[in-house]
Amino acid sequence: MRKILVIGIGAGDPDHLTLQAVKAINTADVFFILDKGEEKSDLVRLRREILERHAGQRPYRLMEAQDPDRDRTAATPAYSPAVGDWRRRRADICERLIRDGLADGECGAFLVWGDPALYDSTLGILEDILARGAVDFDYSVVPGISSVSALAAGHRTGLNQVARPVQITTGRRLAEGLPEGVDDVVVMLDAHQTFARYQDEDLHIYWGAYVGTADEILISGRLSEVADRIRAVRAEARERKGWIMDTYLLRRGPAEDTAGG
């Protein structure tokens, strides 16, 4: 039986790896890497750095493939079909990597940014491959430090206020309105800076880009006062690097009223 490990590697800092993740890395024979192109070559370089630092001198193989392009402009209701098409094409590639690169009895690994359980497609894709029935394997998951937890740590704040819930959503969903009954909203995958729509609300924002990397940028404050600054800094950073990954927390109420314990 082939074995697959889905290893959360944190938000970008090689020191974010848990001891469990390091142990898992040292059991894999093959590491599968999907290259997102020249603009995001930093992501491949960081994976290689993680392996050089934590895999030691033991022999292992790397198998790389080009990640398929995804239509990120599709509007609702076309968004879900566009994501489904991208996942099918990604599953085709991953199925080939596992079939051709992993012998019976060997262990392969996917190194997943952040935590595999939070807005990542790897687990769903592996289930799709198993459902096809052409390649058989067992898999397990090693949790990682997400950009959400790294963002909160960087800003020295909790994600929720005392006895209040926190909701994690996307920029696409936030565009439909602020959720009712929730004072703390973490927003991921927001290419359109949707927070700017709510500058008239009594909100604080804790924003971060390239969280956990050497390029990390953190800005916080009353949304009405820092929204324009965030948009300018974000645009400059994206122009400079060619890509950006950012996450933020929107909070109703006093910025300092965070949860403890």
Rank of each mutant, 00 (worst) to 15 (best):
G84N: 15
E216R: 10
L97C: 11
V6E: 07
L118H: 06
R197H: 15
I145G: 00
S80D: 13
E256H: 15
D202K: 14
V83C: 10
Q20S: 14
A131S: 13
W86S: 12
V182A: 06
C94A: 14
R172G: 07
D228M: 05
L111F: 08
V233L: 11
A75V: 09
E236Y: 02
L174W: 08
D184K: 03
L218N: 06
L51A: 04
A163W: 10
Y139K: 05
L223E: 06
E127T: 09
G144H: 04
L5W: 11
Y248Q: 02
E38W: 07
E95C: 05
D200I: 00
R231C: 12
K40I: 00
I98S: 08
I33T: 06
D136M: 07
G260R: 14
V162L: 14
A237V: 03
L249G: 03
G84V: 07
V30M: 08
R229P: 00
H204G: 12
A209C: 13
D13C: 09
E106L: 09
Y206V: 01
R58H: 04
T157L: 05
S80T: 13
V112D: 02
M245L: 15
D13T: 02
L218R: 13
G221H: 15
S149H: 10
V141C: 06
Y248L: 07
E201F: 10
T76P: 12
D138S: 13
R88T: 14
Y119C: 10
R252Y: 09
H16R: 06
T122D: 10
I219N: 12
L178S: 04
A109N: 09
D15E: 15
R173A: 12
G124N: 12
S41M: 07
E256C: 09
V22L: 03
R132G: 09
E95N: 02
H16Y: 08
I4C: 09
D69H: 11
E216P: 03
C107M: 15
Y198W: 10
A235V: 05
S80N: 11
L97K: 01
I219M: 09
R90W: 04
Q66E: 15
L159H: 03
A109F: 08
T18P: 01
M245N: 09
A237D: 01
S146D: 04
D69V: 13
I145R: 03
Q199H: 03
A78L: 13
S147I: 00
G221P: 03
E180V: 08
P81C: 08
L218M: 14
T73N: 10
R45H: 11
L111N: 06
H155D: 06
R234I: 00
Q193S: 12
L123E: 06
T194R: 07
A214Q: 13
G144M: 06
V182K: 07
D115Y: 04
Y248P: 01
D120Y: 09
G181H: 08
D92Y: 07
A103T: 05
D138M: 04
